[in-house]
C-alpha cells in the first residue's frame, strides 16, 4: 500500500508530458467502451420494463442498475486503481444505508398491522368528537 507501489508506473514527474506524476491514466478506449456499455444497459433495462415478468421486473431493474453503478465506480471513478481504503469508505456508507433499510422494513412490516386509521378503540365512544381538543374521528376505521 505504499505510494511507491501505487505509483510505480508514474515515474515521479520525470516525464511530465506523457504521464501524470500522480493518479492513474485510463485509456480513452476503455472510457468510451464503458460509456457505451452503460448506454446499452440503459436501453436493456428500459426494454425490460415493457415485459411483465412479475416480481422479476424489479430484480432485473435493480440488478442492471447495480452493474451500471459498479462500472461507473470502477472505471469512471478510478476505484479499480485507487487505494482500497477509498473503496472501503464507499462500501461502508452503502452498507449502512442497507442496514438501516433492512431494520426499518423489518420494523414497519410488523407494526403496520397494529396501526389503525383514526382513534384507538373506545376513544370515540368516550370522547365527543366535537369537544375542544378532542381527536377527530376518521371516516373509515381500520379493517384488515
Amino acid at each position: 500500500m505504499s505510494h511507491t507501489a501505487t505509483t510505480s508506473h508514474e515515474t515521479g514527474g520525470k516525464n511530465p508530458g506523457a504521464h501524470p506524476i500522480v493518479g492513474h491514466l485510463v485509456p480513452t478506449w476503455l472510457l468510451v467502451f464503458v460509456g457505451t456499455a452503460l448506454l446499452m444497459l440503459t436501453a436493456i433495462t428500459v426494454a425490460v420494463r415493457y415485459i411483465d415478468i412479475g416480481e422479476f421486473n424489479i430484480v432485473v431493474a435493480l440488478g442492471v442498475a447495480l452493474v451500471k453503478a459498479i462500472l461507473v465506480c470502477l472505471f469512471f471513478m478510478h476505484l479499480r486503481w485507487d487505494r482500497s481504503f477509498n473503496t472501503l469508505v464507499f462500501i461502508v456508507s452503502v452498507v449502512l444505508v442497507l442496514l438501516m433499510m433492512a431494520f426499518l422494513i423489518m420494523d414497519t412490516r410488523q407494526y403496520y398491522d397494529s396501526q389503525f386509521d383514526g382513534n384507538a378503540p373506545n376513544v370515540e365512544s368516550t370522547l365527543q368528537a366535537n369537544a375542544p381538543g378532542a381527536p377527530v374521528a376518521r371516516f373509515k376505521p381500520y379493517s384488515p
Partner: peptide
C-alpha cells in the same frame, strides 16, 4: 499533468450525481 486534483475530485462528485440517478431511474420509472 502535475496538478489536476480539482478536475479529478470535481469529476468524482459529478459521477456520484450520475450514480444516484442510475438508481433513481429504475426505482421510479421502471
Amino acid at each position: 499533468s502535475d496538478y489536476f486534483t480539482p478536475v479529478d475530485v470535481g469529476g468524482l462528485y459529478w459521477h456520484i450525481v450520475d450514480l444516484i440517478w442510475i438508481f433513481l431511474f429504475p426505482l421510479f420509472y421502471l
